[in-house]
Design a protein around this nucleic acid. Structure first.
Length: 438
RNA sequence: GGAGGGGUUCCCGAGCGGUCAAAGGGAGCAGACUGUAAAUCUGCCGGCGAAGCCUACGGAGGUUCGAACCCUCCCCCCUCCA
């Protein structure tokens, strides 16, 4: 059987690693406890945290023990790594709230009832520290000279680094020490920008406990365009279904650039590598099938199979059903042509309001009078202002029920209501709002 | 604490008394081409609108017919010195 190390290696999870051969042996021979920290800077994680999350899930599947550490304590300080500006300091209440939310969210990917996997909050120990004691016990092991030389600080030294942030590294190192002592945690993983902080922890443990620990960093995942993962025109793609609907989530993945499909399948699904390798040979329509598989599998992991299926259906409604050949990705549970033929997906359109996120009520009385198109586009937030709506429609980007508007002030009235009592407004190719008549 | 340099529309960044809703770039939006991809090309890109008006250039005052641009005070950031 493949060790989790092999899995990380072949799926592209590894950027840097402290001691390759030792870590490989360790992960092959016994169950290892390994932790990753998650910053509670927001009430939900987003796609950017998916690589760490997936890595913990892989670890667990291979019999190791993952620790997800929510940074309720370090969040009070703010990590300067990888940031050019000091970040906003959040209040204690915000952090606590966010930490609670992250716990719930992480439970969807990692089973904390199994194999001793734990979810911890470093506020539990960091906020109890005594300053003087901490300086004497921990602080003395840190060389300011070396810290200043660290990449993560060097960047900030040009822009300005606050003392509070300068301490972040010590706290993260202390976390590792704490987890080593109390949970026998031997390895820390994290984004590559965490390298300095992670190594600081290893050093601290070596000095205080005379034991060797390890770390592994993930590459910073960008699209082949060089963009960060999970940022789109509509903002961040969150993992919380309230913030980003499963449908939008699915859409994010199906819009993956050609060159990223194989890499993303490896990182963000559990499909076997033997199947993923095949992607290299795919082009055109069949490459789009691979994107559908990516979208389906990724949505399944985050929102569950049922939600993934719904997103698949909605997508079929809006963009036409392109089913995935039976031979492609046999391990994927995405609906296949034979299944689709028997169900209602193709033939019986769902109520448009079932599209979810964007159904709004509208009063019949208003439609009797007729509403200028640009006003409605503004009102429904399809456009940020009336002016923007005018321009949009004038340029041919506005539609009612798939009919393009001829003029920006064309009136929408009862004649545009379909048999289900709905009006579909569309901006460009992809953005819809459904109005249901009251 | 001292000396100097800065804070401009989503971001970077020009402007330094009227012709500035503010150059240029990026991001974004739409259109064309496509495969719900990329690249490319075109148009748009503060608000309301017919003209025009309103709101904006860190904050508060002031000078002026007129201020993003000049003066005063305050806040914030950077560099050097302590």
């Amino acid at each position: 059987m493949k060790s989790v190390y092999d899995v990380f290696r072949e799926r592209g999870f590894i950027e840097q690693i402290t001691d390759e051969s030792q870590i490989r042996d360790l992960l092959e021979q016994k169950s290892v406890t390994c932790y990753i920290g998650f910053d509670p800077t927001a009430a939900s994680l987003h796609i950017g945290s998916l690589v760490p999350i997936m890595s913990l899930a892989h670890l667990q599947r291979h019999g190791h023990r993952p620790i997800a550490l929510v940074g309720g304590g370090t969040g009070l300080i703010g990590d300067p790594s990888g940031k050019t500006e000091m970040r906003q300091i959040l209040t204690r209440e915000q952090i606590d709230h966010n930490a609670g939310c992250l716990k719930k969210q992480l439970s969807r990917y990692i089973d904390f009832n199994e194999g001793g996997a734990v979810l911890l909050n470093n506020a539990d120990w960091l906020t109890r520290l005594n300053y003087i004691e901490f300086l004497r016990d921990i602080g003395r092991h840190f060389s300011v000279n070396r810290m200043l030389a660290a990449e993560s600080y060097r960047v900030r030294l040009e822009k300005g680094l606050n003392f509070i942030e300068f301490n972040y590294m010590l706290l993260q190192a202390y976390d590792f020490l704490h987890l080593f002592r109390h949970y026998h945690c031997l390895m820390q993983m994290g984004g590559n920008d965490q390298w300095g902080n992670m190594v600081a922890g290893i050093d601290l443990i070596r000095r205080m406990e005379e034991k060797t620990t390890y770390s592994l960093t993930f590459p910073l995942i960008t699209t082949s365009q060089g963009n960060k993962m999970g940022k789109t025109e509509k903002g961040t793609i969150w993992l919380d279904a309230e913030l980003t609907s499963p449908y939008e989530y699915y859409q994010y993945w199906i819009n993956t650039e050609d060159g990223d499909v194989a890499r993303f399948l490896a990182l963000f699904t559990f499909l076997p590598m033997e199947e993923i390798v095949e992607v290299k040979a795919l082009t055109d329509a069949r490459l789009n099938m691979a994107k559908a598989v990516l979208a389906f599998e990724a949505t399944k992991i985050t929102h569950g199979e049922e939600a993934a299926f719904e997103a698949f259906e909605k997508t079929a409604q809006l963009f036409g059903c392109r089913s995935v050949e039976t031979g492609l990705f046999p391990s994927s549970t995405i609906p296949r042509p034979d299944v689709i033929g028997e169900t209602h997906i193709v033939l019986l359109p769902l109520s448009l309001s079932a599209l979810g996120t964007s159904s709004l009520p509208i009063e019949r009385r208003r439609l009797e009078e007729g509403i200028p198109a640009f006003e409605l586009f503004h009102e429904t937030n399809l456009c940020a202002s009336r002016g923007e709506a005018r321009r949009l429609i004038a340029q041919g980007g506005g539609y009612v029920n798939d009919r393009q508007f001829a003029a920006f002030d064309e009136r929408i009235g009862l004649g545009d209501v379909d048999e289900r009592g709905e009006i579909r407004l569309r901006k460009g190719k992809k953005r819809y709002v459904i109005l249901s008549v009251r």
